[in-house]
Every structure is written in structure tokens, then in C-alpha cells.
Design a binder for these strands. Structure first.
Length: 643
RNA sequence: GCCGACAUAGCUCAGUCGGUAGAGCAACUGAUUCGUAAUCAGUAGGUCGCCGGUUCAAAUCCGGCUGUCGGCUCCA
């Protein structure tokens, strides 16, 4: 028998007989320890089971339970195990698909009755029994006809449909994976046996449409996660608990920032404290825009449908708009604006523009309404009424690159100031699009050169651009690692066109030209951005954003007059100050100030009154010792400075 | 919009088998005047989300609606 040469990741080359199973090779030629810890292998870049033979010279990498890749495989194993458990407990339930996802896995079933919470408990117990049973995963390659016959016999109609689909794509054979008596059609790879999975936790269930299409039957989806050992699961559960503590809906109540009422679903009521944050961000963004060559405009909130017909919203977005009945015509001819762009385009058209006007940058923070599906509303992250830090830039084509650079720099400044890290995503031309390739080449080239010029790393999302132009989306990572798409920058050649808004400018050649529109936002929406900041800071805002920046605590009631005068003084300087006059002890008031995460608590007693001083304490407990009021004002000035 | 769960005082929650509600915190009153994370006592606060049904009797069981939550769909 001939030998094959196997190259390990460190470059070591080893000889083994051709056809040797990966597992055996690892055990005999590398070490039994690794063999025991191995979950799957990568053979010449392809992920495979450890039971696969090595037929030719190849590079081999082994993934053990320490690697994230192996955890992903184990979670896919877990999905199979859960499906097995479900079919053991509830015969007649059909399986569909069950991938591993970030943080776990899901499996979709077809079944008349949804799963109850009690069902899920039973399923979890059954799944972990299968784990304990240590059943090996077995891979089997079969002809498609054989697979179809098998699934038809089993009554697995959805599986038959999936197999037929891949047959249509030209597949002749496919792989089955079995553990015990259970079988699924699956690409793999899988771990060596069910025991390797460790521990399975069912987290939730929900409905999900077959193939994600709401016209298709509703399936029952079970979500779960798996870890190689219970300790890791416990750590994950604990981390989830911590995340719940900083949930903006919870902190919104605890810190008294906003409310919702059933009479206005999806629209927030902002308390004085919440409003303070909102206003601070709004003023900050306004100043930033004005300082960077934008002008601020305000446009109407309500428009005749004529506008939406030009913009295309009436055809494409109508179901998301709040229509308003005209009391004269009794027709729903008006709509609240869901976006600012059309009104900005109208504004641009109010006068003739010269090339000297460009780039023209309109900033607007108007209120927008979108009739989001009832079931999709949630806290401040998905609302029906909100405001964007919106702007539209009207420029010449040759100015796109520079405008992109300016925008990215502005965005970088804002996110850095708030401690948010981000990843730009470059979304290029989609299959269905307007405009010719030369136009797209130019637009994409401009975005790319701007990103390259700034030395920014970005991810590519080919084909994910808007139908009217390429875009950059900015995914922000918050302090607990969750990602949110906030900022956006989009190139739009469509809106200025003849049959849309027919926007023009007079060029140096004294002829009419069409500007390009750049849609852009940094916060995205104030509502959602505040939600993310609440969770990012866990409610402990930096001083410039804190709803209450300073709270005054008196040692005894006789110090109240002094405290009141201090409050007026600081308020007069423009700071947000509170004085708690309730008849509680100083200690209780300090505790409350800490729970409210107020940046500075000023304690005043006999000593402070006498010396015209304050004793500041920072959020977190640092005692700054008694200092003159003037000195504290200097400190506050520094700490509360807008970045 | 679809699937499921949930809805009790301002907040967090208890309320067993159907017998018309209870705690802590907050509020209010009084006493206490205290040096860096909870002083003590008392008072008040609820058509148990809304509408209907079953029952002698409903917070509790059933149906509808609204809202919230977890997903799905959608997300210029």
C-alpha cells in the first residue's frame, strides 16, 4: 500500500498509509491526547469528520473542544440530537432544518401543536439522555433517489423537498448522518459521538415560516445552545443574566428615562431625565453638523401622496406609512413622512443651483413615523415614531470620494467619543439595480478609494447594496459585544433623475447637470442610539450626557439653604443639578444617588458651609475630599465638556 | 401581520383546589438631624389590562380584543 504525506499546521510532514482514517492517524502519529480531544478536522481546507479516510497528500488541521469552530460543530450535533429527542417524544413530527447559529442552534419542526414550556423541558431532558448514551455519528453517502425513497417512506415531506431542490441543482449523491436510529440529510461535519457535545440547553421556542416566507406553512422552531461542559454553560447563563441587567427597557424604568403607553404603541414618552439625554445628543449632533459644512433645515411632517408617488414610496412602502384622511375629500391622500429624503429633494428644487453651491448638505432632525408590524416593536430599538440625525448631501460625481472621506471621519469622531468600536461594511451592486455598469464602477470606486485612503478595514457585502446605489453600513459593537447597524452612507443616482425629482445644477460649462445624492446618518435614530448607549454605559453615562450631572446631599437640614444656593449657582452655569430635600439620612441619599448612577454627589455639612466648599463623591464611590466650590466648578467644566 | 408566553398598587413580585387581594420598595404624615450605599413608626394606595361567557360565586376557568416579551416576516 502506498503512503500519503500529511502536512500539519506547524509545517511538520508525516507519512501514513493511504486511506488511513483521520482519527487513527491522529492517535498513532500525533498523540492519543489530541485524538481524544478532537471534534472534527480540516483536510485541505475542507471541514470533515474524523472518520474520513486520507486518500492523498493533504494538509490536516485538527479542531479540539477548545476551538470556537468545534463548538459550532458541536452545536450542529446538538441540533440533530434535539430533533431526535423531539421525534422520540412526539412521533409524527416532521423535521426540516437545524443549523448552528451565533450562540447556539435551532431546529425547525412541522407539527400541528406548538411546543409548550413543559414540552421543552422534556425535550431538553431527552436530548441530554441521548448525549449520555454516547452514540457515534455515522456518515453515509447515498444516491439521491435512495435518499428521496428513504424520506418519503419516513413521511418527511420537507426533507424530500430539500433533496429535490439539490437534485434540481445537479447533485447526484448526498450525505446522510446517523446517530443511533436517527437519520438526517446533512452536509456535516459532525463530531465523533453524541457524548462529545457535553450539555444541551433549550432556550426558547417560536414560530418560523418554512423557508422564511410568510406565505409558507408555520413551523415550530426550538432554540437551544450547547457547551462542551457544564461550567461553560453556567458562565454563559451568568453572562446572559448580566446582559439582562443592562437591558435599556429595565434601566429606562430604574433610571426613570422613558415610558410607553398602550394608546401610543411604539412611541416613547420621554421623562425630564430621558429628554435631557435626547437633547444633549441632539445639540451635540447639530453643532457637529453645522461645524462641518452642513446647514440645518426643517420640512413638513405631512405630505400629499403626490410626493410619495414621485419618490416611489406610494408603490413600495405604503403599508409602512401612516395615512391621513383629508377631511374634505374623505380620502387617505396624505401621509406622515417615514423618511426625510423626499422632502429634502423638494427643498433642493426650490431654487436653481450652481456648481458653486455644491456640495450642499441638508441636516434635519424631524420626527418620522413608520407603521412597523405590531409584532416587531420592541423597546426603543424598534419604534413607530423616531427622529434621525439625517442628512442628504447633493454633490457632483467627482465630489463623492471627498464627501465619503469627510463623512467617515465625522462618524469615526462620534463613535470614538462614545467608546463605540465599529466595522464598516461595504455593500456593492445588487443583481437587480438601476443605472449602467459604468455608473456603478464610479460610485463603488469612489467609496472604496475613500475607505482605502483612510486605512479603514472593512467587510465586503457583495450584492447587498441598495437598488439605486452602493452603500456603507457601520456595525457598532457595544460594551458586551453585541453588534448593531447604526451609521449608514448611501450613494443615490436615482432620486435626482428626470422621472423622479429632476434635480439639476448649472455647471461651469453653463449646461444642466444632475447632482448625486448621498444619504447619511451617524446615530441612525436617536431612539435606537439612546437604547444602545444606555446598554453600552449600563446607565452610567459620561457626565456630558448624564441626565443629572450633580446631586446635592446635606448632612442635616440646617445645611439646606446653602445647598439651595449651590443648586441655583450650578444650574445657572448650565449644569443639570438636583437637591434631594426629603427627610432621609445622608447615607440613604448617597445610596440613592449611586443607584441613579449620577456622576457627582456633593455632600455639604458644617465644614462646607463654613468654607464655601463641597465634598464631591464620584459615581462608584471615589471620595474627592472637601474642595472650594470654585475648584469643583472647574472640575465639572472639564468633565462635563461635550467631546 | 404570523407562532407562543405573559398582563395583580408607581416599581418588583406573592396570591394553593374558583369563595370579591398581600409583601417589600417608592409616596404621604410624624419623630429623628445623622459625614459618604438603606433611621424608626404610622397612613394611604387596586373595578386584578379591557369586553363578554361559564358558575351560587372568577384575579383564578373559557372566548375575543389591546398591550408587552421571545422569535418569524419586514427593516431605503
Amino acid at each position: 500500500m502506498s503512503n500519503v504525506t500529511i502536512t500539519l499546521p506547524d509545517g511538520t510532514k508525516k507519512e501514513a498509509p493511504a486511506g488511513v482514517k483521520i482519527a487513527d492517524f491522529v492517535k498513532d502519529s500525533i498523540g492519543p491526547g489530541l485524538a481524544k480531544a478532537a471534534v472534527f478536522a480540516r483536510l485541505d481546507g475542507q471541514d470533515v469528520d474524523l472518520t474520513r479516510p486520507i486518500e492523498k497528500d493533504a494538509a490536516l488541521q485538527i479542531f479540539t473542544s477548545k476551538s470556537p469552530e468545534a463548538l459550532e460543530v458541536a452545536r450542529h450535533d446538538a441540533a440533530h440530537i434535539v430533533a431526535d429527542a423531539v421525534q422520540r417524544l412526539y412521533p409524527g413530527t416532521q423535521v426540516t432544518i437545524g443549523p448552528s447559529i451565533e450562540d447556539g442552534f435551532y431546529y425547525d419542526f412541522f407539527r400541528e401543536k406548538p411546543f409548550t414550556p413543559e414540552d421543552l423541558e422534556k425535550i431538553e431532558a431527552e436530548a441530554n439522555k441521548i448525549v449520555q448514551a454516547d452514540l457515534p455519528f455515522r456518515r453515509e453517502e447515498v444516491q439521491v433517489a435512495e435518499a428521496i425513497a428513504l424520506f418519503e417512506k419516513m413521511g418527511e415531506k420537507f426533507k424530500v423537498e430539500i433533496v429535490n431542490d439539490i437534485v434540481a441543482k445537479g447533485a447526484k449523491t448526498l450525505t446522510l448522518y446517523r446517530h443511533g436510529d436517527w437519520v438526517d440529510f446533512c452536509l456535516g461535519p459532525h463530531g465523533p459521538s453524541t457524548a462529545k457535545v457535553g450539555v444541551i440547553k433549550i432556550t426558547k421556542s417560536s414560530g418560523a415560516y418554512w423557508r422564511g416566507d410568510h406565505r409558507n406553512p408555520m413551523l415550530q422552531r426550538i432554540y437551544g445552545t450547547a457547551f462542551f461542559d457544564k461550567k461553560a454553560l453556567d458562565a454563559w447563563l451568568k453572562q446572559r443574566e448580566e446582559a439582562e441587567k443592562r437591558d435599556h427597557r429595565r434601566l429606562g424604568k430604574e433610571l426613570d428615562l422613558f415610558h410607553f403607553h398602550p394608546f401610543a404603541p411604539g412611541s416613547a414618552f420621554w421623562t425630564p431625565k430621558g429628554t435631557a439625554i435626547y437633547t444633549a445628543l441632539s445639540s451635540y449632533m447639530r453643532k457637529l453638523c453645522l461645524d462641518n459644512g452642513y446647514v440645518e433645515i426643517k420640512t413638513p411632517l405631512l405630505y400629499n401622496k403626490g410626493l410619495w408617488e414621485i419618490s416611489g414610496h406610494w408603490g413600495k412602502y405604503k403599508e409602512n406609512m401612516f395615512l391621513v384622511e383629508d377631511s374634505d375629500t374623505k380620502e387617505h391622500d396624505f401621509s406622515l413622512k417615514p423618511m426625510n429624503c423626499p422632502s429634502h429633494h423638494l427643498f433642493y428644487g426650490f431654487k436653481k443651483h450652481s456648481y458653486r453651491d455644491l456640495p450642499l448638505r441638508f441636516h434635519t432632525q424631524d420626527v418620522l413615523h413608520r407603521n412597523e408590524a405590531a409584532g416587531s416593536l420592541g423597546g426603543l430599538t424598534r419604534v413607530r415614531q423616531f427622529a434621525q440625525d439625517d442628512a442628504h448631501i447633493y454633490c457632483r460625481e467627482d465630489q463623492i470620494a471627498d464627501e465619503t472621506k469627510r463623512f467617515v471621519q465625522l462618524l469615526d469622531k462620534v463613535y470614538n467619543a462614545l467608546g463605540l468600536t465599529y466595522v464598516p461594511k461595504f455593500a456593492t451592486r445588487p443583481p437587480q439595480r438601476l443605472g449602467d455598469d459604468a455608473l456603478w464602477d464610479k460610485a463603488e470606486g469612489a467609496l472604496k478609494s475613500a475607505l482605502d485612503g483612510l486605512g479603514l478595514k472593512y467587510e465586503l457585502k457583495p450584492g447587498d447594496g441598495a437598488f439605486y446605489g452602493p452603500k456603507l453600513d457601520f456595525d457598532v459593537c457595544d460594551s458586551i459585544g453585541r453588534r448593531w447597524q447604526l451609521g449608514t452612507f448611501q450613494v443615490d443616482y436615482l432620486a435626482p433623475s428626470k422621472d423622479r425629482f429632476d434635480l439639476t445644477y448649472i455647471g461651469e460649462d453653463n449646461a444642466e447637470h444632475r447632482p448625486v445624492v448621498l444619504h447619511r446618518a451617524i446615530f441612525g435614530s436617536f431612539e435606537r442610539f439612546i437604547a444602545i448607549l444606555i446598554e453600552h454605559f449600563s446607565g452610567a453615562f459620561p457626565c456630558w450626557l448624564a441626565p443629572v450631572q450633580v446631586t446635592l446631599v446635606t448632612v442635616a437640614d440646617r445645611h439646606l439653604d446653602y445647598a439651595r444656593s449651590l443648586k441655583e449657582k450650578l444650574r445657572g452655569l448650565g449644569y443639570r443639578v438636583e437637591l434631594d430635600e426629603r427627610g432621609m439620612t445622608m447615607q440613604a441619599k448617597i445610596r440613592e444617588a449611586q443607584l441613579q448612577k449620577i456622576p457627582f454627589t456633593l455632600v455639604v455639612g458644617d465644614k462646607e458651609v463654613e468654607q464655601q466648599a463641597v465634598a464631591p463623591r464620584r459615581y462608584g464611590g471615589e471620595d474627592l475630599k472637601t474642595m472650594p466650590v470654585t475648584q469643583f466648578v472647574e472640575l465639572l467644566q472639564k468633565e462635563a465638556a461635550v467631546p
